[in-house]
């Protein structure tokens, strides 16, 4: 994905009009490029309940012990649909309507995927706390 993104960046660099930030422009290309690749894989977005009754509550102290690599591993372990929506919503800052348009799903599906992703992450973090050496 990185390779494909850079190829596109260099191919369309003459279209950058210096009106906005270069970083934002690059980020947009990378995100769109990744989405195109992921769309070809046809990830499944299973409909689930909005609420996650079984999601554990995570104490802030538990999170503070996690480093970046551990967080990335946790996110990478999520199912495709969950990971996509979580990345787009939490890290890229898109809202559910935008995510719905990008992934061709409804905003409700996006919300439910995000909720499920959070719940799964919390569960994994809780498990990680119980087995601190697993990801160390």
């Amino acid at each position: 994905m990185l390779q494909e993104s850079f190829v596109r960046i260099f191919s369309f660099i003459n279209q950058y009009r210096s009106e906005g930030s270069l970083e934002g422009w690059l980020r947009k290309i990378v995100v769109n490029c990744c989405l195109n690749i992921i769309r070809k894989r046809k990830p499944s977005f299973s409909e689930i309940d909005e609420e996650q009754p079984n999601a554990p509550s995570i104490a802030p102290q538990a999170l503070s012990t996690l480093d970046e690599d551990q967080l990335l591993k946790l996110i990478a372990a999520l199912p495709d649909g969950y990971r996509l929506v979580f990345n787009l919503y939490v890290l890229e800052g898109y809202d559910h309507n935008e995510i719905g348009e990008m992934l061709n799903i409804t905003a409700g599906t996006s919300r439910s995927q995000l909720s499920k992703a959070r719940g799964l992450l919390k569960t994994q973090i809780e498990n990680l706390q119980k087995l601190p050496n697993k990801y160390a």
Binding site: L2, Q3, F6, V7, F10, S57, I58, A59, P60, L63, L66, E68, L71, L72, I75, Y89, V90, L91, R118, L121, K122
Partner: peptide, 30 residues
């Protein structure tokens, strides 16, 4: 922990995160 705080934690940790790029990446791109 609320959802917003949970999200913010990931955002703060990973937004500025950088990963090492494979050495031959530039040749592959070219």
């Amino acid at each position: 922990m609320r959802e917003k705080e949970f999200d913010q934690f990931f955002r703060d940790k990973l937004t500025e995160h950088s990963s090492p790029v494979p050495e031959d990446m530039w040749q592959r791109i070219q």
